[in-house]
Design a protein around this nucleic acid. Structure first.
Lengths: 176, 176
DNA sequence: CCCTTTTCACCTAGGTGGTAAGAT
DNA sequence: ATCTTACCACCTAGGTGAAAAGGG
């Protein structure tokens, strides 16, 4: 499934005439598994992390493109797909449920991206830079744990319009 | 709009480990404009061609990919989009209505594709090869000129299922 | 007990030819 | 007359959370 809300970044300081790949991966924040304690509205440690999963990388579909092109637009990762299926063969990013993760944005000079692949770790070294934003850390779930998140999802995601109460359009099928 | 039926090709003889772009462009067959004569079921010359339009290239979305990848699959151009709007800014291939055209498939070695662009002519020379299939020549229209074409479109295109007679599912709105 | 999967109605997004109106 | 455009009902394709069913 997609990540929502999606990561969106603006980039400056690139060489306008150089070609770059932009990619995202998602790394564990710690070695723990979590559970949500409803009465205190907090995530609590609930044991150690599950075993690691195959590394996956989302290569932004506009890649490769010039620095000028990347800097002219907001770069959105809304088509990035996540799964909890460790045997996934669709190239989706594989995560464990109930774990904390940090998305990372990678800027890779084209000549350093020759072995860039959705199923290999992002290369490191000269011509490759990684950026993380601590405010984008999130915890994975298979069902929402509190109503603020549910409301955010329904109010902001266009595909969830059918669940909005506004305008009294809410007429869901009645069970007979 | 899309071209239907779409061009589909199989390629052999590539270097499995070399990277290639695959692209398509569509060139005029002659310098004429045509009209369809219904009673003889034939296209007849109806004057000289309209003035040329900006060249456009459809770069196959799997590009670039290895020779191995290209040779393993049927390469389909079903997402290629056409328009008759000479001012198009969506990167669609621009054609004149009532003219004859020949689609061409281009195989471009990655190192020869540095100035490959949707709005520039396909490069020529070393590392670039072009292929045309005379049986794929077609004439552009804005309305179908005979029922065989209409039937082919309706029967074969999944998006036209609503127009099929089969199974007596045909219940279109009645004008009051 | 808590987490996960499946199915569902309800959406967005966009590809069909028919039809009627518009343009030349 | 002939070609073109705009709008329509009808599709494909796939992204939503709710609810029910499944699993350890």
């Amino acid at each position: 499934m997609r990540m929502f809300p999606a990561m969106r970044v603006k980039i400056s300081g690139l060489d306008p005439h150089q070609q770059y790949y932009i990619a995202m991966d998602i790394v564990p924040v710690d070695n723990k598994r979590y559970r949500y304690v409803y009465h205190s509205s907090k995530w609590m440690v609930a044991g150690n992390a599950d075993s690691p999963v195959p590394p996956r990388v989302y290569i932004h579909p506009d890649s490769p493109a010039s620095g000028e092109t990347w800097m002219r637009q907001v770069i959105s990762f809304d088509k990035l797909k996540l799964t909890n299926n460790e045997l996934d063969d669709q190239g989706h990013i594989i995560l464990h449920s109930m774990h904390k993760y940090q998305p990372r944005v990678h800027v890779i000079r084209k000549d350093c991206g020759d072995d860039l692949s959705p199923i290999k770790p992002v290369p490191t070294g000269e011509g490759v830079k990684a950026f993380s934003f601590p405010e984008t850390v999130f915890t994975t779930v298979t069902a929402y744990q509190n109503q603020q998140i549910t409301r955010l999802k329904i109010d902001r995601n266009p595909f969830a319009k059918g669940f909005r109460d506004s305008g009294r359009n809410r007429k869901r099928k009645v069970v007979l």
